[in-house]
Nucleic acid binder design. Structure first.
Length: 380
RNA sequence: GGGUGCGUCGCAUAGCGGCAAUUGCAUGUGGCUGUAAACCACACGUCCUCGUGACUACGGGGGUUCGAGUCCCUCCGCACCCA
C-alpha cells in the first residue's frame, strides 16, 4: 500500500490523497462501507460498486466464526470470495471486545448519549464484562452464535487477517467503553499498546497494518497513545475507542491525536460517520472512516437526504410521488417513488432494504465527494 | 322446524367468579456511530389535576352474587349438523 497526499488544505488539517493498493486506488477522504460478514448487507459486491464505494471493511471476529479464515483462504481470499475487486480492509476484532463485552452488558454504544444524572464513571481498573474476559495477552470471547468459547489476541487476530487477505489490516486493540473511568482506560491502554506492538512483530504478510490510537476521552492518554502508536512503523493509523459524549469531545480527541501522527500516513477514524460530523472529522485530518449507519439505518427504513433523515416506514410517504432525494443521481432516486419504497417496507419486502442501502451508500459517497471537491477548491 | 357451538381493542386470539382484561399482527413514537441488529424499547378504550385517578367497556336486555367477560334466562347475529 502506498499513500500520497495530493493537496494540503491551508484552512484546516484536511488533506486530499490517494491510497494505492494492488486492488486499485482510493481517493481520500473516503467513506468506507461496512461489510462485516464479507457482504454489505442486502447487496452484492457489484451493486456496492455502483454506489461509488471505493473501499470496504470486513470483520476478523465474525469471519473467524463463520465461515472461518481457512475456508476463505481456500477460496482464494476475501476479494475473490466476495467478488469485490477493489481495496479491502479487515477490522481486527477489537471492537467486539467492547460490543460483546461492556457494550452488551450496559446497552451503551461507543459514543455516549448524555443524559443528566447518568452514571458514567462506573468501570474501574479490574472490571470485566459478563460474557468476555480480557486477559493479558488477548480476549476470551463467547460466540454470539452458539456460545462457544474462543480466544483472540494480537497473534490470533493477525494470523486470521493474513489468511483473509485484505489489503489493509488493523491491530488488535480493546475498544473501550465510554462508561470506563480513567484508571480503567489507563490500564487498558497499556495492554492495548502491548498487543499492538505484538501485531507489528508477528505480521509476515505484505498487507498494510494500521495501528490504533486509544485513550478514550482523556487528553493525556490520547496524546500518550497517539505519540506511542504514531512512533511505531505502522502503515497507517486508526483512531478508535470511545469518543466521549458530545461532538465537542470528538473534535477535541481528534485535535489531541492528529499532531502526533506522521502526516504522510493515512488516518482512519473507526466507526464514526454521522453526516453532520463529516466535515469536522475531515477538517481534523481524517482520511478514511467507516460507519454502519448508512447500511444499518437503511434496513430500519431511514433514508438520508438533503432534507434530513426520512423514515420511509411511515404511512405519510405512501402518497408521496417524489424520489427519496430530488438531486440524488443514484439509480433508486432515478426510478422509484417514496410511495413505492414505503409500500415495500410495509409489505416487508427485502427489496425495500436493498433500495435504501443502495441510496444511502450513494448518498454518503456523494457527500464525501463534495467534501473532496471543497478541499480541491480550497474552501475547506 | 329441531339440535349444537360461537360472538372479547382495527384483525386474530387468551380468559373458566376478583379484569381496563392475555398474546400475535396492524398502527404510532423513540432509539441505533470499527454490525450481537430486516433489530430493540415504549404506547395503543375515553377523559383529566397524569394517579395504587375518574368514567365507559367483553353482541343487546334481564337475573344470581359482596363482586359477572366468566353462572342462569331471554333476544339478536354467525357457523355447522339433522329434518
Amino acid at each position: 500500500m502506498e499513500f500520497k497526499v495530493i493537496k494540503w488544505s491551508n484552512k484546516s488539517r484536511a488533506r486530499l490523497g490517494v491510497l494505492k493498493t494492488s486492488h486499485g486506488e482510493v481517493e481520500t477522504p473516503a467513506f468506507v462501507p461496512v461489510a462485516t460478514q464479507a457482504t454489505v448487507k442486502t447487496l452484492t459486491s457489484a451493486e456496492v460498486e455502483k454506489t461509488k464505494s471505493q473501499l470496504l471493511i470486513a470483520n476478523t471476529f465474525h469471519l473467524h466464526l463463520k465461515p472461518g479464515e481457512a475456508i476463505v483462504k481456500k477460496m482464494k481470499g476475501l476479494h475473490e470470495y466476495m467478488r469485490w475487486k477493489r481495496p479491502l480492509m479487515t477490522d481486527s476484532g477489537g471492537f467486539q471486545v467492547f460490543s460483546l463485552g461492556f457494550g452488551m452488558d450496559t446497552q451503551v454504544g461507543k459514543v455516549l448519549k448524555f443524559f443528566p444524572g447518568a452514571q458514567t464513571e462506573v468501570l474501574h481498573q479490574n472490571a470485566q464484562p459478563k460474557t468476555v474476559k480480557i486477559l493479558p495477552d488477548g480476549v476470551r470471547f463467547r460466540s454470539p452464535i452458539d456460545g462457544k468459547e474462543l480466544f483472540i489476541g494480537p497473534k490470533e487476530s493477525i494470523k486470521i487477517q493474513e489468511a483473509l487477505g485484505a489489503d489493509i489490516i488493523f491491530t488488535f486493540d480493546e475498544c473501550t467503553s465510554p462508561l470506563a473511568a480513567y484508571d480503567y482506560i489507563k490500564e487498558s491502554l497499556k495492554r492495548t499498546h502491548e498487543w499492538e506492538k505484538m501485531c507489528l512483530k508477528i505480521k509476515k504478510s505484505k498487507q498494510a497494518l494500521f495501528g490504533i490510537v486509544q485513550g478514550s476521552r482523556f487528553r493525556d492518554l490520547r496524546e500518550e497513545s497517539a505519540a506511542y502508536i504514531g512512533g511505531l512503523p505502522f502503515d497507517g493509523f486508526g483512531i478508535g475507542g470511545d469518543l466521549g459524549s458530545s461532538k465537542k469531545t470528538m473534535k477535541n480527541i481528534l485535535d489531541w491525536t492528529m499532531p502526533h501522527l506522521p502526516e504522510e500516513k493515512p488516518r482512519h477514524l473507526l466507526g464514526i460517520g454521522y453526516l453532520e460530523d463529516m466535515e469536522m472529522v475531515i477538517k481534523s485530518g481524517v482520511d478514511l472512516f467507516d460507519c454502519i449507519v448508512p447500511t444499518h439505518y437503511a434496513r430500519r427504513g431511514i433514508a438520508f437526504t438533503d432534507t434530513g433523515k426520512l423514515n420511509m416506514s411511515k404511512t405519510v410517504f405512501l402518497s408521496d410521488k417524489k424520489p427519496l432525494d430530488r438531486t440524488c443521481k443514484c439509480e433508486v432516486c432515478g426510478s422509484y417513488t417514496r410511495s413505492y419504497i414505503t409500500h415495500l417496507f410495509k409489505a416487508k419486502e427485502i427489496t425495500a432494504m436493498r433500495l435504501l442501502t443502495t441510496h444511502n451508500l450513494f448518498y454518503y459517497n456523494t457527500f464525501v465527494e463534495g467534501i473532496r471537491e471543497k478541499i480541491k477548491k480550497g474552501v475547506l
